[in-house]
Design a protein around this nucleic acid. Structure first.
Length: 512
RNA sequence: GCUCCGGUAGCCAAAUUGGUUAAGGCACCUGCCUUUCGAGCAGACAAUUGCGGGUUCGAAUCCCGUCCGGAGUACCA
């Protein structure tokens, strides 16, 4: 087989959706696995839908996700330009070639005339009449018009489009890597528009010309393209490029969590769930991103890879490098996968646990600094070591770990204080406070031994002591090991917090 | 409507391509461990493979029918 060259071809009409990112990912994985080339091509042929900033967003999202491009608008290879608006002349040339070969024709119908035709021909059996071999004879085009009429139209500068002339009665078969052999009857196809009145190509035209000249070997794209693939096959055939036609691989859709329909932009905004890699703001909406949601790119990629593919083994955690090794187009699923953010969070937690304390400290630092604290690297790393299996997303770090950085201002479980705090034990507890910071080595182990000995000597129970130490030190009844926590905080801070805590507990008890 | 594509526990899914009791993970629940939470370990719950026929010694896998879901049906991609 010749060299693998694949492309990701988004249109800059908004932020890159998670489904698009998955398409990019599969292209990337396949290219890397095969030692091939991963290309970004910007499909900006619809000027009315062009969105400022979308191109930049796409590039940034790919970069954050770690999908490195071999050729793109920023890194031109030998097959440029990589933006369709810069390749305009080529499309025109080949569209005209199709017209002169009799495989395409000019059409002059106005949008109103088109609408009228569809309205007139609409029946309940056929609610969407096609512009095809049945209807084109009644429309205004170079097939139906007389030579004089045609010449007049053109001389007048009447705007026209170019349509593909699809011959009826043909079976169009192609092989899809995930679906197998797929067959369509040409009778079902319509005469797709190839060139618009503004001389820009449609997706169909641009796609085939570009894929051919960019020597694309595999077209890996979403399932929504499956129905237009026969048109594309015809285009390759009529252009004389069928022998180098790329292989098709249509990916299953990513569905909403309820399984009804494609995952949409709106869904994410509505449910407060990220469906974009990066945050995107426009006038009306704010779409949250995985990055801002506290996800690690590797975890998101791992999650995404499994949305429509699996290695067939029991392994679930794959670094990007592992994914490249294991990935196979043949193992892509046929059915759509529901988007389950819970699973994404699970993947993220797995990755957080795997991350080294030093690395994690770097990731978490911005969240701590946003709260106005500047801990040393050493301190932050220790906290990370204690907390790393206790949060799923980076954004939860602060809430779970704040007591390491600022003093306790409230207690999340006053009920236990009211119920089980015994003021008569207060005197004994004071002893703990005053002896604990005299420990020679303030390690978790030593503290634990000391506290246990203390409980024994004073004839107290664990339940009378431990929850209250925890509460006094952290303000919460959950979290890392109390002793380790105290060790990280340091003897002075601990003594201070115990004193303050015991006082507060008395007050709470009194007011109960 | 029509065309195409799907359908394995609540969710993601495996099943060496027709071969013994239909993997595994997520979620949920229980136990152990920590007198906390999480993590980890052990376990439990959960599927007449959408449904009905057929072929076969044998069907999730092949055939026919049927139902449900999705995509497409634009001078959007």
């Amino acid at each position: 087989m010749s060299k693998v060259r694949v492309r990701f071809a988004p249109s800059p009409t908004g932020p890159l959706h998670i489904g698009g990112l998955r398409t990019a990912l599969y292209n990337y994985l396949f290219a890397k696995k095969m030692g091939g080339t991963f290309i970004l091509r910007i499909e900006d042929t619809d000027r009315s839908r062009y969105v400022e900033g979308a191109e930049k967003y796409i590039l940034e999202a790919l970069k954050w996700s770690g999908l490195e491009l071999d050729e793109s608008i920023e890194k031109e290879g030998d097959f440029g330009p990589y933006r369709q608006s810069d390749r305009k002349a080529m499309y025109e040339k080949y569209a005209e070639e199709l017209v002169s070969n009799g495989h395409a024709y000019y059409a002059f119908d106005t949008p109103e005339e088109l609408a009228k035709m569809r309205e007139d021909l609409k029946t309940k059996e056929d609610p969407n009449p096609k512009y095809n071999y049945v209807t084109r004879g009644n429309m205004k085009n170079s097939l139906s018009l007389s030579e004089d009429e045609l010449k007049a139209m053109i001389d007048n500068g009447t705007p026209y489009i170019i349509r593909l002339k699809v011959e009826p009665g043909e079976q169009i078969q192609f092989s899809d890597i995930v679906r197998g052999e797929v067959t369509f009857s040409s009778n079902e196809l319509d005469d797709k528009v190839l060139m618009k009145t503004d001389k820009m190509p449609t997706y169909h035209m641009a796609n085939i010309v570009d894929d051919h000249f960019m020597e694309i070997s595999h077209v890996i794209r979403g399932e929504e393209w499956l129905p237009s693939t026969p048109t594309h096959v015809l285009l390759y055939r009529y252009l004389g490029w069928e022998d180098t036609m790329p292989q098709f691989c249509h990916l299953p859709l990513i569905l909403k969590p309820d399984g009804k329909g494609k995952l949409s932009k709106r869904y994410g905004a509505k449910m407060g769930v990220p469906v974009f890699p990066l945050e995107w703001k426009d006038k009306e909406d704010l779409f949250i991103g995985f990055r801002e949601g506290g996800f690690l790119p590797e975890a998101m990629i791992n999650f995404l890879a499994f949305l429509g593919w699996n290695p067939g083994t029991e392994q679930e955690i794959f670094t990007p490098g592992d994914l490249i090794q294991a990935f196979e187009l043949e193992r892509i699923n046929k059915s759509g996968a529901r988007f389950d953010i819970e699973k994404a969070r699970w993947f993220n937690q797995q990755y957080i646990m795997q991350t080294s304390d030093a690395e994690l400290a770097k990731l978490v630092r911005p969240y701590v600094e946003a709260e106005g604290h500047q801990p040393t690297d050493d301190y932050l790393q220790k906290v990370c070591g204690l907390m790393k299996e206790r949060f799923e997303v980076l954004t939860d770090f602060w809430e779970n770990s704040r007591y390491f950085f600022e003093e306790v201002s409230s207690y999340d479980n006053e009920k236990i204080i009211r119920k089980r705090w015994k003021p008569e034990n207060r005197k004994k507890m004071q002893d703990l406070k005053s002896t604990i910071n005299r420990l020679s080595n303030f390690t978790g182990e030593n503290i634990e031994a000391h506290v246990k000995k203390f409980i024994e000597e004073k004839e107290l129970s664990f339940g009378e002591v431990l929850p209250f130490i925890r509460l006094a030190v952290s303000g919460t009844t959950k979290g890392a090991s109390v002793f380790e926590m105290m060790s990280v905080l340091g003897e002075d801070e601990v003594a201070k917090r115990l004193a303050r805590g015991f006082e507060d507990f008395d007050k709470i008890k009194e007011n109960a």
